[in-house]
Amino acid sequence: MSAAVLPSPRAAAALVRAGFRRYASYRAATLAGAVTNTFFGVVKLSILFAAADAAGGAVAGYDRAALSTYTWVAQGMIAVVVLFGGAELAERVRTGDVVIDLGRPVHPVAVWLAEDLGRAGQACLVRFFGPLAFGGLVFGLSVPRQPATVPLFVVSAVLAVVVSFSCRLLVNLVAFWLLDVRGVLSVYMVASNVLSGLIVPIAFFPGWLQGLARATPFPALVQVPVDIAVERVTGTDALLALAGQAAWAVGLLAAAVWTLHRGTRRLVVQGG
């Protein structure tokens, strides 16, 4: 097990840049992903608009402009917070490559987090702003009325990436105990997609499911940033929402560090 040292600010910045550049090289895949997310966004928003019209203008408190912003922010967040899973670390555990990460002079969780922040920054460029720009031009978006909304949204989106990173890390670390994590990953993907508010806003759910969703970290991935963007949550409530996200981020990161510590004790690298 490596020494539990945090990287220096310079090293951390270099790791963030490395994560950014690594994903910048997949141009065709990035473009295709943005096109796919945009196409599904058009269908989803058409359904939501039809529902709003049937309900006389607004569904569960979302009017047409808010539904459009919800759809395009949520579709843009798919790549930023990796809502469709990812088993890279679990694969490194299975193949034994994880020992390289463990042998570094800085704590592996800090390295992975820095790289993931770089990846998320890269994902913002095309996968977030692409669908959002398309949605704004074709369907219109709700324009923020308060100047604080934009900075609050940025902080909320960064916290969403940290919460998502911690969740994905925890799910991947199951690989130390189960070598095949595909089943666990698919259950995680479905739970996070429904309970994060990606499929429909959480306010569309019956009361019991809303309660269940709010007891999990998943709304911190999509619903909290979206509700800040459409100004459904403002002022003190917005700050409380950010505090909730921050609490999940810290708690889940701590859980991931502890799980990694337990997992490395069990690690057997095959083939020497």
Partner: peptide
């Protein structure tokens, strides 16, 4: 879930 959620919001 999407079908169910939308069609419980609107008749």
């Amino acid at each position: 879930v999407e079908v169910y959620a939308v069609l419980t919001q609107v008749p």
